[in-house]
Amino acid sequence: MEQKPVIEVKDVSKSFYLPHERHDTLVEYLTNPIRLFRRNGEMYQVLKDIDLKVYPGEFLGIMGRNGCGKSTLLKIIAGIYAPTTGKIIINGSVAPFLELGVGFNQELSGRENVFLNGIILGMNKKKIRQKYDEIVQFAELEKFMEMPLKNYSSGMKVRLAFSIAIMTDAEIYILDEVLSVGDIAFQKKCDGVFAKFKKDKKTVILVTHSADAVKKLCTRAVFLKDGIMHDYHDLNKVVEAYING
C-alpha cells in the first residue's frame, strides 16, 4: 500500500500533571504564594512514543483495558489535547465522536437539538435542513421531535444522537465506544451504515471493548497497554492479547 496516510501519529507522548493536593482557588495561591512556583505533584505519562499510520479506507480498532490511554490517544488525534511531545498530521476532515450527542440540552426539543448538535459537529444549517427528515427517520422518532429532550428515554436520545452523527460528511471518523447503542433492530441499521462507510472508503478509528466488533468491522487493530502500543498485525492476536490482559 503506497498511499499517503490520512492520519500520522509521530512519536507522540502525553503526560498529565497529577497534583497531590488541590489548589485551584485564588485564595489558596495568595495564602501560600510559594505554591505558584513549587508545585507538589508528579507527572504521569499516559502515552509513550506512539507511532501510528492510518491509511484511507482502513477500519482501525484500538483495544485495551480501562485507563490504558485509548481515549487520550483519540482526544489527541481529534485535536482536543495537545501532545506533550511528538506530532500529529491529519489529511482530511475529521468527525470526532468521543461521545454521542455533544451539547445536547435537556430543555430543548428534539428538533432544536438536531441543529445544535449538528452545528457543533461542524455541519452547516442548510445541510442539516436538507438531511433533517432523513435523520428523524433513521432515529425513528417522527412523533417526538417537538418534545423536550428531558422527556426522551435514554435509548431515544442515543438513537437521535447517532442518527445526527452518521449524517456528518467527513473522511475520518473517530468513535469512542459509541457502537453499542439501541436495540437489535437499530443495531442492524447501524451495521448497514458501517457497510456503507466501508464502501465509500471512509477511514474509521474505533475504540471498543467488544472482540466481536473488532473481528466483524476492523481491517486492522492495535493493542494499548500502559501507554505502549502493540501492533501484532493480526486481528486475532490483538483480541487475544486484550482478553489475556
Binding site: I80, V102, I120
Partner: peptide
C-alpha cells in the same frame, strides 16, 4: 466544558 472536551471547534 462539556463540548470543549469532546469536539474541536
Amino acid at each position: 466544558a462539556g463540548i470543549i472536551l469532546k469536539v474541536r471547534f
